[in-house]
Design a binder for these strands. Structure first.
Ligand code: MN
Ligand code: MN
Ligand code: ZN
Ligand code: ZN
Lengths: 143, 143
DNA sequence: AATAAAATTATAACGATAACAATATTAAAA
DNA sequence: TTTTAATATTGTTATCGTTATAATTTTATT
């Protein structure tokens, strides 16, 4: 079950985080655009609705949402930080041709290593890279 | 078996990549300091030996080594790109307390997902975060 | 030795993010 | 409701990692 905007509102209230108009819009955006957007993408798109919007607000809001555990950071690429409203465990695949980031299901919880027996694990991320089916087929067409 | 500096030299020769003094020093440094250093760390440390060294050279060298497949990029944190001379599959754990990055063995090759059946996978990265044993014990001491 | 190619260096430019202060908005108190 | 305090947003500036560019040096080729 994917979490609704209402669930997020409740969670913020529980954690005593004020839900301003801007923060609501960011949450709305993330639930509706689950393409792992960058700060710049979020800002540019939301600015159409909120002309006075500041990019600093996007940074602040995302930091707060990440700290509250409602949003997760995706660092699959070293030059672009992305954000994901889905915090449940799943993997990420980035196509090196078209740049799209795909979700994939994988049993991260059961993923572990003998070497980490005495470590306290708080967060797990799995990043794959390669070529997506769409790009693979378009390459075949050319040949 | 960990690869020796000689192996790297051979591999570079095979790929027609010139081994300059600076490139050799970077390779040497990475084999001797397997702590996943940042560009700045590599530069600062090597500058002691090579006073005329330029940071641009570190960037260029690392880009070439990554392209040649001799070095892998670690993007476990969004604000610091790190480099690893060990390209064989293994996972990375970053301690959120002391910042140390630990290697751990894990069977990445057998790690896959139904969702990626038609994808061509070129690269896999596993990043964990949490608290390392050393930091865990020092926290306990205080209590 | 002369020439061409490649690598290194120094410098400037760029872009993402953070710091900061001023303004606006919301919450709490009177 | 008015006043006051706290918080959020905005606009601006600063910082830092990285890349682009051109000049210089080194290496390879003839
Ligand atoms: Mn995702
Ligand atoms: Mn490693
Ligand atoms: Zn693609
Ligand atoms: Zn630690």
């Amino acid at each position: 079950m994917k979490p609704s905007l209402e669930d997020f509102k409740k969670e913020l209230k529980m954690k005593n985080i004020q839900l301003s108009y801007q923060r609501l819009k960011v949450l709305e955006y993330l639930t509706q655009n689950q393409c792992h957007p960058t700060v710049d993408k979020i800002f540019t798109d939301l600015q159409k609705d909120i002309p006075t919007l500041s990019k600093t607000t996007i940074y602040n809001t995302l930091r707060i949402l990440v700290e509250a555990g409602l949003v997760r950071v995706i660092t699959i690429e070293d030059n672009e930080t992305r954000y994901d409203i889905i915090v449940e465990n799943h993997g990420h695949f980035k196509c090196e041709s078209c740049g799209t980031i795909y979700d994939f299901s994988i049993d991260i919880d059961s993923l572990t290593s003998e070497d980490l027996n005495n470590f306290k694990i708080n967060d797990k991320n799995i990043y794959f890279k390669g070529i997506c089916p769409r790009c693979l087929s378009s390459i075949n067409e050319i040949r």
